[in-house]
């Protein structure tokens, strides 16, 4: 029996997205990853681009290569990613350091879990991220000037 082939049912990277029931924390988890990677990519490019000012090259000002609507839009995406990652990060720090998950309780049906304990926090930080983004968008569109 031991030599019979077993099928490996591991879900793979797709399992990061799906796998079980899709809870809101699962979306937050995957979005946190995607935005983090996006911001990291931006940081690497941003470091190089801004360092060029030492040579007097300002790519982002009037007439510069990066002074185009497409890059402006890309920059707004970075601000959006930052807003989500930063505010969700506040929640994660609190949750992962055990501040927002509650104490162990007796499991009585219908079960209450730590997900419910931290859910209000999730809602609050998402609202804050949205407000941050709305104000950011207002500035990006030049409406504040």
């Amino acid at each position: 029996m031991a030599d019979l082939h077993r099928h490996d049912n591991r879900l793979g990277v797709w399992g990061w997205l799906g796998g079980g029931r899709w809870g809101v924390e699962r979306y937050a988890y995957i979005l946190h990853r995607v935005t983090g990677l996006g911001i990291l990519l931006y940081l690497l490019m941003h470091t190089v681009v801004t360092s060029l000012r030492v040579r007097g090259i300002y790519l982002w000002t009037d007439g510069g290569f990066l002074h185009q609507p497409i890059f402006k839009f890309g920059e707004f995406l970075v601000v959006a990613a930052f807003a989500f990652h930063a505010f969700n990060g506040i929640r994660l720090v609190l949750v992962e350091l055990g501040f927002a998950v509650g104490k162990p309780i007796e499991p009585v049906y219908p079960y209450k879990t730590s997900l419910g304990v931290q859910r209000p926090l999730l809602i609050v930080v998402m609202l804050l991220a949205f407000i941050f983004l709305a104000v950011g968008g207002y500035n990006f569109l030049g409406l504040a000037k």
Partner: peptide, 29 residues
């Protein structure tokens, strides 16, 4: 563990593994 929360959501006995792991991280830190 990155607190996707699925373990606690599906646990048929209300054990809340996600809570246990976060409390564990807190102790470790």
């Amino acid at each position: 563990c990155h607190y996707a929360g699925e373990c606690s959501r599906v646990c048929p006995k209300g054990v809340d593994p996600a809570k246990a792991i976060q409390l564990l991280k807190r102790k470790l830190v």
